[in-house]
């Protein structure tokens, strides 16, 4: 019995030398592993197109997509039409996001600070957050027309629910010890809100904002698909209709960059404002 039990430990100690391989990964700069997997993915894709017998119409090669990325970049730098379309989409996203943050935070505070809000209204928002909100895009087009309004309102609609829910959770989530401390110092409700709840709510809020900013981009592009006429999303749709998939992929690449930039901005702000939120 004793012998069989001791065997696994021996095996574990014998496996130790292989830890040298893990050491190599640990010694790389943090971006290197990601770069490796991207390179492998692109190579596999190129091989699939070159030797797999798949038509370039169905699946453009990474090289032709890269070519289109260069072309789109040139067009964007020159300014003119494409840059204008991108600017429209950026405007929609920013307008939608600002609207969602302002309204979402205010509604979230009201919901989170009242017991009726927490019990009576919060479940509705959680429910709404779980619905496929994108299905409402045609409704927004019908209500607000084909202009920019329907797009940024859709973007706001997509992103507001995570903001409301996270804000409400945040302002309600106060540490009992800290509340007791404030009460023992005879703090007013106003001070408890501004000097305690707001700070404790920030980490929650940023969790919501990071979901929201991606949803916002999705909302704007989806509304452009359906509500036609303007924006980068419309350019994607038109290119797809021409079966110019390499251009579609190139445009999506730029939309991804836009989404990444937005996400990173929020993450950067989070790091600056909730630097204190370290688990000890």
């Amino acid at each position: 019995m004793v012998l069989t039990r001791s065997q696994p430990t021996q095996a574990r100690t014998r496996r130790r030398p292989t830890e040298g391989r893990r050491g190599l990964l640990a010694r790389m700069p943090s971006w290197a592993p990601v770069l490796i997997s991207i390179a492998v993915f692109l190579a596999a894709w190129q091989l699939l197109v070159t030797f797999g017998g798949i038509s370039q119409l169905v699946l453009p090669s990474p090289l032709s997509v890269a070519e289109q990325v260069v072309i789109v970049t040139q067009q964007l730098f020159v300014g003119g039409f494409l840059a204008g379309q991108l600017w429209i989409t950026v405007q929609e996203i920013l307008l939608g996001f600002v609207l969602a943050v302002v309204v979402g935070v205010i509604v979230g505070i009201v919901v989170g600070l009242t017991s009726f809000g927490r019990r009576g209204i919060m479940p509705l928002f959680v429910l709404l957050d779980a619905t496929p909100k994108i299905a409402f895009a045609p409704v927004f087009i019908a209500w607000f027309g084909f202009g920019i309004a329907s797009k940024f309102l859709m973007a706001a609609f997509m992103s507001i629910f995570p903001i409301i829910v996270s804000t409400a959770q945040g302002v309600a989530a106060v540490e009992p010890d800290e509340l007791k401390l404030f009460q023992s110092m005879k703090a007013s409700r106003w001070d408890i809100f501004w000097k305690l709840r707001v700070h404790r709510a920030l980490p929650y809020l940023f969790t919501g904002l990071k979901i929201a900013v991606v949803a916002c981009l999705t909302g704007a592009v989806a509304a452009e698909f359906i509500g036609g006429g303007i924006g980068f999303g419309e350019q994607v749709r038109v290119a797809a209709a021409r079966i110019a998939l390499d251009r579609v992929f190139a445009l999506i690449f730029f939309l991804s960059l836009l989404g990444l930039a937005l996400f990173m901005s929020v993450a950067w702000l989070e790091k600056r404002l909730t630097f204190w939120n370290v688990r000890s």
């Binding site: 540490e175 010890d177 800290e178 007791k180 401390l181 023992s184 110092m185 000097k195 305690l196 700070h199 204190w276 939120n277 370290v278």
Partner: peptide, 10 residues
């Protein structure tokens, strides 16, 4: 007052 935990605001 003083409590069991320091409860400093982080």
């Amino acid at each position: 007052h003083m409590f069991q935990k320091a409860t400093l605001l982080p």
